[in-house]
Amino acid sequence: MTDLPIRLGAKKESSTFLEKVKQILPEGGNLNSCLTCGACSSGCPATGLENMDPRKFLRMAALGMDEEIQKTKWVWMCTMCQRCIYVCPMQINIPQLVYNARALWPREQRPKGILGSCDMALRNESRSAMGTSPEDFQFTVEDVLAEYQEAQPEFAGMEAPIDKEGAEFFLNQNSREPVTEPDEMLPLWKILHLAGADWTYGSKGWGGENYCLFLADDDAWKQITSTTAKQADDLGCKTYLNTE
């Protein structure tokens, strides 16, 4: 009649997934400090998906249930929004536990959409998740700018520079605009123009999105951030300005 007892701590404590993550996080991510209060789960929109929630995920890791941790698709449904940390009395870094659990998946088995967007960004130095080349980006920007300078003569003097040395702001651009809805770039340019902002895009690292972070691919994430940081520094821009 009795079920087989659940075996906990089957692995040596030091080799569990939780312990490994603790070693790479400042303060060990407070991963051993859970009071099981459930504030994280009660305010998490991902609670219930895949029969999982943040507290349960952390408890499973604490109990050394590494096989289940490695298998659950829930790690791709937690957006790592950090609301659980915000409401946690012990500031436990559950999102980093999720990030590292994503990294346990063989790269080619991670969700295709995220994988594809990360790989696109690695194709050229735009670092655009849509794979747009620096030349295509430059063409679109110049084309749309010229069209609007004519259509809206009040903005005939407006600029949308690429690689302007010494500009104050290095601005990035989500690829969705230049690729699928270029007219949407105009409101932002006009605002910058009226404010008298001295800004520039970079021919390298202009892409304003980073799916390699979501893919939990550290090397690729580093490559993307390095490209854009180097370009901003090479141009001598004092401020790296994000629109999102």
């Binding site: 290095f170 990035n172 989500n174 605002i191 404010a195 902002a197 304003g208 999105e209 980073n210 972070l213 550290d218 994430w221 580093k222 993307i224 951030t225 390095s226 854009t228 940081a229 901003a232 520094d233 821009c237 004092k238 401020t239 790296y240 300005l241 994000n242 629109t243 999102e244």
Partner: peptide, 30 residues
């Protein structure tokens, strides 16, 4: 992007001379 740049610079110790800002702050300032 704001987060991925800031977190990436820190996580990977990427050298840089700029500060990272978000445009909402500037909209309000302007």
């Amino acid at each position: 992007m704001t987060f991925s740049v800031l977190a990436g610079l820190k996580k990977f110790n990427i050298p840089h001379k700029f500060v990272v800002k978000n445009i909402y702050e500037y909209y309000a300032k302007w």
